[in-house]
Design a protein around this nucleic acid. Structure first.
Length: 109
DNA sequence: TTAGTGACCAACT
DNA sequence: AAGTTGGCCACTA
């Protein structure tokens, strides 16, 4: 449990630093952590985000800007609702203007 | 320790 | 161009 907290904490830290109204991808976070191919592991961290107090996992989408993890959220369109609540346009589980609101930690940070 | 799964990404066909 | 397969890392059983 100790090791998972470290990696998860890094992911949560980055996700928590995502500016409101912006979204990022798993690969971007993985790259920022130094492991570009651990995108799946990043997604796994999001899966554990359920146990975390405040992790804006709705700001984290796949490379296509598609809300792949929306299916894992409690509500049906809760993820989309949250994104729209932050000013992000989401249609059919896709983030509109994804490239415009795309936030890359490795670059911004 | 080995094997299987997963909210992915990239490459090959 | 689109669809399919493999591989990567981390976690659970």
């Amino acid at each position: 449990m100790d090791k998972r907290v470290d990696f998860f904490q890094l992911v949560y830290d980055v996700v928590c630093q995502i500016p409101q109204g912006r979204v990022t991808s798993y690969g971007a976070i993985a790259k920022y952590l130094g492991t570009p191919k651990s995108s799946r592991a990043v997604g796994y961290a999001m899966n554990a985000s359920h146990s975390r107090p405040d992790v804006p996992a709705h700001r984290v989408v796949n490379r296509n800007g598609l809300l792949t993890g929306k299916h894992h959220f409690p509500g049906t369109h809760l993820m989309q609702q949250l994104l729209e609540s932050e000013g992000i346009e989401v249609v059919d589980d896709q983030v509109q203007n994804f490239k415009e609101i795309y936030w890359e930690p490795n670059v911004e940070l």
